[in-house]
């Protein structure tokens, strides 16, 4: 493809990214470095501040069955309640990623079953990549950037909740050294979604063709946007391998939670995605 077409594709995906993802990397980094001018970020660092911060987390919360909770003691309830908030936000994020996927030129022309498969397998990878800009070595922004939750607090939760975020922090801290910006991210996310090797795809060829075009656009974008960063394109593609391992581990952890936590009900949309996944 012509360079001009690839630049147009990059612009289009960046615009879609800005349209569908409310918290950009630029905004997140401004909040994390304290450059937003206000001090509105609420910090959750222990159980007390978690309870105080819960009002922020109430976005479309799944009602939790009190009679189940009462048998478990207050601390367990807080963890489960927090986990439910995370699920609500994840389900909302899946909707955002779906809209972004639909904006990738050619995506909606693919077989509908293949669109489903690409989302089913791609969406957790995308969500994990999108966590990276929200994180630093000390913690992560949550709730659209209104809250900063410390890494130490997440590590202090009871097992297996404490094991859920640590691998994402380790990945994100390394990923952030690549210093991608939002316009790079938009192309990278599209590349992840358009993976032709997802299990059960019916018609791989058109997906690979779409991915190849986006890969060209990404390669050109990185050359122009990061002229001094050697091998950035190759380094970024290598991250896709690490990402698959993180997703596999994440899914296994969720399956474990489902077995061990009596009160855990997985959000129906997330259930759909997790079912028979790896």
């Amino acid at each position: 493809p012509e360079a001009a077409d690839l630049r147009a594709l990059a612009r289009h995906l960046y615009e879609a990214y800005l349209k569908y993802f409310p918290l950009t990397k630029a905004k997140a980094r401004a909040i994390l470095s304290g450059k937003t001018g206000d001090n509105a970020t609420f910090v959750i660092h222990d159980m007390k501040s978690l309870m105080e911060g819960e009002q922020f987390l109430n976005c479309r919360q799944i009602p939790i069955q009190e009679h189940h909770i009462s048998g478990q003691g207050p601390t367990n309830a807080v963890e489960l309640r927090f986990f439910h908030s995370c699920q609500s936000r994840s389900a909302e994020a899946v909707r955002e990623v779906t809209e972004f996927a639909k904006s990738i030129p050619g995506f909606t022309d693919l077989d509908l079953n293949d669109q489903v498969t690409l989302l089913k397998y791609g969406v957790i990878e995308v969500l994990i990549i999108m966590m990276a800009p929200l994180m630093n070595k000390d913690g992560t922004l949550i709730s659209y950037g209104q809250i900063f939750m410390t890494r130490e607090f997440l590590k202090s939760l009871r097992k297996p909740f404490c094991q859920m975020m640590e691998p994402k922090f380790e990945f994100s801290v390394k990923f952030n050294t690549l210093e991608l910006d939002d316009s790079d991210m938009a192309l990278f996310l599209a590349v992840i979604i358009l993976s032709g090797d997802r299990p059960g795809l019916l018609n791989v060829k058109p997906i690979e063709q779409l991915q190849e075009t986006v890969l060209h656009a990404l390669e050109l974008q990185l050359k122009l946007n990061h002229p001094d960063s050697l091998q950035l394109f190759a380094k970024l593609l290598q991250k896709m391998t690490d990402l698959r391992q993180i997703v596999t581990d994440h899914v296994h952890l969720l399956q474990l939670l489902k077995k061990t936590e009596v009160d855990m009900c997985l959000h129906p949309l997330l259930q759909e995605i997790m079912k028979d996944l790896y």
Partner: peptide, 20 residues
């Protein structure tokens, strides 16, 4: 198709808020 009902819905609906 039944197995991925919500994903199908999300893909086929417009950007209007879907009841999650």
């Amino acid at each position: 198709k039944e197995k991925h009902k919500i994903l199908h819905q999300l893909l086929q609906n417009s950007t209007s808020p879907v009841d999650l």
